[in-house]
Structure formats: C-alpha cells, structure tokens
C-alpha cells in the first residue's frame, strides 16, 4: 500500500474534523478498504479509524421500539445482540463473510461502501430504516443511490442505523460460489402497514425494492403470492457467475423462500 497518515479519534466530532482534510478517508472495519489499499487501488492522504469511538458502537432499543445499531458496531455484535429483538437482522449479520470479517466489519462501513452484493443494504432498505449521520437523518429510500453510491457527503459519518422492527421478516441469500457475497439476496419485512422487499446482488443499480412483490405480499403474505413472479431481467447483472435471466429468476425463488422462512 501507499503511505498515509493515520488517526484514531475517540469522538465523532474529532473524526469529522480529521476527515475534513483533503483525501482523508474514514476506516470502519477495513474489510473492503484494507484489501483495496493493499492492491494499491486507493491512495488516501490519511486514514481516520472510527474504531476508537465508543459512542457509535452497540445495539439498543429506542422509545418507539426501533432497534438502534451504532455505525461502528461489528456484524458479530449485531448477530448476538439483535437476536431477541430483530432475529432476521441478527441472522443476516451472522452470515456475512466469515468470523474474521464479522468481528472486524461494521454496519456503517458496509452501508457507506454500498457494495451491490453486500447483505446489509437489503436489510436497511426493506426495514425502511433511518440512517443517522453526524449531520442529519436520511431515510433508507433516499440513502442508496446506485453501485457504491450513497447520499453521504464527503467526510460524513454513519453514526447509527434505526430499524423499525417488523412483525415478521427474513433474509435469504444465494451465494456467489467464489466470493460468497450475495449472487441474489432478498430481505422481506412485514409491517402493520404493508410489506417491504429489498433485493441485493442482482441489479446493476445496486439494492432495490421489488414493488410488485411488495404489493402481492401486502395482500397475501405467503410464498404462493409470488408464484410465477420475477422482476424483469433488464438491468440485472450478467457475469461469470450468472446471466441477467438467471438472476431475475433467482430473485423470485429466493423471495418466496424468504417469505416462507419469515418469523
């Protein structure tokens, strides 16, 4: 990797200040950024580690019942601490990567990066969660803006994600054989006012809501409601591991499985 300065502040305010410098880059758990640096594919002037900031770590419950996950919380922590309140979210976190990834990687890092095959964006979007930063609150529907694109400004830090807890939910992932990222992942969440379905891994535009499935499931929350349904193959990713047609087909299959598994 190229040489860089390194800072590890202990407050969000100090981190935001350090990130004000040109070409400074926030470092979450480093599960994407460190390999990128090792390959010399990025050249930040400074890395600002968020791992020393206690105020953005941990899982708690808000007064309105929402589950609040600090931006610096590792997947392993979510897997264990969200289990009682939001089991589908905990299960998703517990199945990201491998134990090393889960004990370093953070939810803030994942959704700030917004890899089109990452798991977390589907949970955030399907839950209609709120992404809280050091500057503002952003609704999930406004947050994800395409491949590796988000509503975050330069230097903006994800401090918390607030998940309204659904009545029933499940995340099902069909793994890409090499990376074991989602070839297709579907998060289904049933709320009193309707069902939300978010799909990751499949689309050239990143995570998206499958509105036809949401409508079908809102009137009948059962796998059969999606029988014969699949999103259009147009705009789906086509690569070594599967064609656009295959991915579109899988979205239907995996969505039905998510509904069947929802609890």
């Amino acid at each position: 990797m190229y040489a860089f300065e390194f800072e590890r502040p202990s407050t969000v305010a100090d981190a935001a200040k350090a990130l004000g410098e040109e070409d400074a880059q926030a470092l979450g758990g480093g599960q994407t950024l460190i390999p990128t640096l090792k390959q010399r594919l990025a050249m930040p002037s400074k890395l600002v580690s968020l791992s020393g900031i206690a105020e953005i770590k941990g899982v708690c419950k808000a007064d309105d019942g929402a589950l609040c996950v600090g931006g610096g919380t590792t997947h392993a922590t979510v897997a264990s601490e969200a289990k009682a309140d939001y089991p589908a979210l905990a299960a998703l976190a517990g199945n990201i990567g491998d134990p090393a990834v889960r004990n370093r990687g953070t939810i803030g890092g994942s959704i700030a990066n917004n890899d089109p095959a990452a798991c977390y964006p589907s949970a955030v979007l399907a839950s209609g969660a709120t992404v809280v930063t050091n500057k503002r609150e952003i609704a999930a529907d406004d947050y994800f803006q395409g491949l590796f694109e988000t509503a975050l400004d330069e230097g903006e830090i994800v401090t918390e994600v607030r998940f309204p807890v659904p009545e029933k939910a499940s995340y099902q992932k069909f793994e890409q054989p090499a990376s074991r990222f989602a070839l297709v992942g579907v998060f289904v969440a049933k709320y009193a006012d309707g069902v939300r379905v978010a799909v990751t891994g499949a689309s050239e535009s990143g995570v998206f809501r499958w509105s036809e499935a949401e409508a079908a499931l809102s009137s009948n929350f059962a796998p059969e409601a999606l029988d014969g349904m699949a999103p259009p193959a147009d705009g789906m990713i086509s690569d070594l591991h599967g064609s656009a047609d295959y991915r579109a087909h899988l979205v239907g299959v995996i969505a039905r499985r998510a509904v069947a598994a929802a609890s």
Binding site: F174, P177, L183, H241, G242, S243, D245, Y246, H249
Partner: peptide, 15 residues
C-alpha cells in the same frame, strides 16, 4: 464444468 448453479439452471431451461 464447472457445473455451477447458473449452468445447471440454464441446461434445465434451455436458456
């Protein structure tokens, strides 16, 4: 080979 999920599905569906 490799008999990947995508290839098996394509073979089953003449895709």
């Amino acid at each position: 080979m490799p008999v990947s999920p995508a290839r098996v599905w394509a073979a089953m569906n003449n895709a």
